[in-house]
């Protein structure tokens, strides 16, 4: 069960105090967008095995949304930051790639399926 530090109130929140909100940094496409753009915005998700940027709300606390960079396999959390950023900061990207040196995995990019056992 995860703990994530809410960047707004500083509480190291228990997963039971949080609500998940899916993938972060989606760009909204509204009226005037193409079907492909809209489909991508509404339905296409990276669902990576590895580093992932995701949305969480500190529901049972300050009520604020924040974003977390987390490895979906190891559960390592690289950092959390406010939800209004359109993209991860360079610092956050650095943390993610630094912690995963050599893996060459860019967040949001699905990794190759594991070789058959």
């Amino acid at each position: 069960m995860l703990t994530l530090t809410c960047p707004h109130c500083g509480v190291q929140a228990d997963e039971t105090e949080l609500s998940p909100g899916g993938e972060a940094h989606l760009k909204r496409f509204g009226p005037g967008s193409s079907d492909e753009e809209f489909e991508g915005y509404l339905f296409r998700r990276a669902n990576p095995k590895g580093a992932h940027y995701e949305r969480w709300r500190h529901t049972y606390g300050c009520g604020k949304w924040f974003l977390a960079a987390r490895d979906t396999v190891t559960m390592q959390v690289f950092g959390t930051y406010p939800a209004w950023l359109a993209e991860p900061s360079d610092e956050m990207r650095g943390l993610v790639s630094g912690q995963r040196a050599g893996s060459g995995v860019e967040p949001g990019t699905p990794t190759e399926p594991e070789a058959a056992q």
Partner: peptide, 13 residues
């Protein structure tokens, strides 16, 4: 209320 706050905090902050 959560839906409103989501849009206010994340999209139209």
């Amino acid at each position: 209320h959560a839906h409103m706050e989501d849009w206010l905090q994340c999209e139209w902050h």
